[in-house]
Amino acid sequence: MEQQQDPVIVRHRELERIANMALRAGRIMMECGASVSVVHGGVTMIARGFGVEDVGMRSGYASLEITVHAGGNTITRMMQVGRLGVNHRLDQAVRKLAVRVSHGGMSVDEVEGEIGRLVRETPRHPAWVVALAVGIACASFGRLLGIDWLAFGAVLVAGTVGQYVRHQLLHHGMNVFIVAGLIAFLAATLGGIGSILLKSDTVSLAMMASILLLVPGVPSTNAQTDIMDGYPTMGSARAVWVLMIMVFASVGVWFAETLLGLRSL
């Protein structure tokens, strides 16, 4: 009983709640594709909004750490980060919340409730809309690369099917690199077969265009941003991740080309 009324312990518990809530916001931003400097900025704004005097942060690829200091008390907490993806609307919503919190006047409970509400209610496009949009994007990429019109439809279908299956596999928790390899094989095979059946002259290009949904454009630019912002460890980790995705995707295309007789094993 005495322990619970100890002002140091009470203050530590308050700081812990602030640290964990700020880390949760940071984790969401990180998982939504924000760069490290943005994550640090958002987390710092939230912590300072609750009167924290000093904030120190460290970001790894799979975890975030924060040290907060206020009123002579200091605590350090760590939180794991999940799979890094891109979710623009949720990212922007959490950034707006960080600005609101930084102005003061919100309780920890209110902010926790608001973060939960944003995660639940921020809209996402339906999976079929995303699949179709990605199919159109792949076919458009293909035109930029030089595929002929005969292959356009084949790449559109291959990209659409590839994205839909990728969404389902990731939703079921399959490893992201294995998914990249499988989807590259599936999309390249579909794009290749379609192009051959439609008598396209650009079969190889069509197969390559079909897998462009796997190219991690945001992580590759984030890698550079992080390094330029002074976080080379995180930037290097992102670059290695990008390389691994492309290695798996290339192996998938390799097998697809072998299956269609365009390459020998």
Partner: peptide
């Protein structure tokens, strides 16, 4: 198309 994938509004 990639904007839709990235969940732009």
């Amino acid at each position: 198309g990639f904007g839709v994938l990235f969940n732009f509004g």
